[in-house]
């Protein structure tokens, strides 16, 4: 999670050519979200799991941190999406929203080799929608839990119920995301420094490579 200051514009060199995968806005949003979400999961666990609650104690403080981090969560997203600086983010969200014929092919293991993916694979698309939807539900149910007075009391119970289960799901999704990212140095670098090698894009994301470089991906030589 260290900020990398070596990020400069990348010249397209023949030897170690790279292309931009995530711009500054996207990376900043990613890491701000990562801190908030990990903080929410940690404080949530401390509030939820009896044995951990009793080790950590300080319930009012943990609760305040949890509630305020949760309320803060939409702010970076809105700021990142709203301005001129959000163009790449908006474009990526539009791409992630769409489920193409190649994505369907990729999902079938037998046909995966023939799938020519765009910028994101279907697992990444699914993860984005799932994490986004879960966070929205967790925020909404969290608000009902915290400010329960105007609602019927079954809603308070129901919100707690939904909050618990969605938090479980989100925790699993985040754990899987972190494990997969740590196992993939290129993706990790893409989110730390913003770029990926051209060769990686050509092999793994051929449609995106074509759109970005204007060069055909199919007959390009693998430069490893």
């Amino acid at each position: 999670m260290t900020a990398d200051t070596t990020d400069t514009t990348e010249p397209m060199q023949a030897t170690q050519a790279t292309i931009v995968r995530f711009d500054r806005t996207e990376r900043a949003l990613h890491w701000v979200n990562a801190v908030l979400v990990l903080g929410l999961l940690a404080t949530g666990l401390a509030l939820y799991a009896g044995p951990i609650s009793t080790v950590i104690g300080r319930r009012p403080l943990v609760k305040a941190v949890h509630v305020w981090s949760g309320l803060l969560l939409p702010v970076p997203v809105i700021v990142a999406l709203a301005g001129r600086w959000g163009a790449a983010l908006r474009a990526d969200l539009a791409t992630m929203n769409r489920w193409t014929a190649d994505d369907r092919r990729w999902w079938r293991r037998s046909a995966r080799r023939g799938a020519r993916l765009g910028k994101f694979n279907p697992g990444q698309k699914l993860n984005t929608a799932f994490v986004g939807g879960s966070l929205a539900v967790l925020l909404g149910t969290g608000i009902v839990m915290r400010w329960f007075e105007p609602f019927p009391d079954t809603w308070r119970t129901g919100a707690t119920f939904a909050h618990d289960w969605f938090a479980f799901g989100l925790g699993l999704a985040v754990a899987a995301h972190v494990v997969l990212a740590l196992a993939d140095p290129v993706s990790l670098r893409a989110m730390r420094r913003g770029t990926v090698p051209v060769g990686w894009a050509r092999r793994n994301r051929p449609r995106w490579h074509e759109e970005t470089t204007g060069m055909p991906s199919g007959d390009a030589r693998d430069d490893g």
């Binding site: 929203n97 929608a129 799932f130 929205a136 909404g140 969605f166």
Partner: peptide, 23 residues
């Protein structure tokens, strides 16, 4: 392609709302 991401997102919101009401 189909707006799959939006459908998953909205389905989750629906599931969450159902959880609040019938949870």
């Amino acid at each position: 392609g189909a707006p799959f991401g939006r459908r998953v997102f909205l389905a989750l919101l629906g599931l969450g709302a159902a959880g609040v009401v019938w949870g």
